[in-house]
Nucleic acid binder design. Structure first.
Ligand SMILES: [Mn+2]
Ligand SMILES: [Mn+2]
Ligand SMILES: [Zn+2]
Ligand SMILES: [Zn+2]
Lengths: 136, 136
DNA sequence: AAATTAAACGCAACTGTGTTGCATTTCAAA
DNA sequence: TTTGAAATGCAACACAGTTGCGTTTAATTT
């Protein structure tokens, strides 16, 4: 599916900015920060528009947001089974302590956890850190 | 061990601010944000000093930092086996989707994860969300 | 008890991420 | 081609967190 089709399939208009952002997402093997998007774009775009497009991606199920461990957001392409307000990205994320890059791992089963009385679990997230392949 | 002793045991000077922060940490069953510390203090303190004290706590192994899922930091007391630059808080954290509060869970074994070639694991973190005991 | 010194503090300024309001432009459908 | 809603640009803002620097204070030494 082309990126134009992808956007329309998720109910988003195809604009130059969004196609450019998708291009960067596709070309990367890891999650990208707002800064990295801004620095990699071919088209001119206001930083606010980038934020808004990335938020639209997340809401539409085109991308998912990951925190980089220091509080800033990274974004990575979703799989094929994510849609509007409906994410299915049940994989761990790995953050490199050297370069700070965040990688999506292969899907994995998470262990059941015993919660204290009164707590109701919705989702579990496994975060990993260490050294990435480029930094050793 | 008193809070005075605790601070000295970790190589930190005992000041009115730090004792007040420790009091708030002790009294809470969950991790607290900078804002909550600032709002709960009995002594007057600059926000910068609060940040610096909390950072000192983390470095000394008195408290550990947890991200609240929206990028801001929360802090909770460490167990007895944390020291200077040496943390041992291997428990999951639960964030309530309603009130945003973050709770430390009981220690748990995490599953081994198969990483891609070249990745070297240092630590794993399990993050949970859902509804907390006060919010259902 | 007084002097000493490094640590802690207060204040001001700054950085970076992310958001909101509003006017203008542009996409997509009629 | 017209049209209306969605997307964008710009300015302003909110908030967490940091840095530099001069002053105060805690702990140690005399
Ligand atoms: Mn991912
Ligand atoms: Mn904890
Ligand atoms: Zn790396
Ligand atoms: Zn709650």
């Amino acid at each position: 599916m082309s990126n134009e089709e992808l956007l329309r399939h998720h109910g988003l208009r195809t604009t130059a900015l969004r196609l450019d952002l998708l291009r960067l997402l596709q070309a990367s093997d890891r999650a990208l920060t707002h800064q990295e998007f801004e620095g990699g774009l071919k088209v001119e775009a206001d930083r606010v528009s980038i934020f808004r497009s990335l938020n639209a991606f997340v809401e539409a199920g085109v991308a998912h947001r990951v925190l980089d461990g220091r509080g800033t957001s990274c974004f990575a392409r979703c799989g094929t089974d994510c849609g509007h307000g409906h994410h299915n990205d049940t994989h761990a994320h790995f953050r490199c302590n050297t370069c700070g890059h965040v990688y999506c791992m292969d899907p994995i089963e998470l262990p059941g956890v015993a919660l204290p009385r009164g707590f109701k679990l919705a989702k579990s997230y496994l975060e990993l850190d260490g050294t990435c392949k480029g930094c050793r």
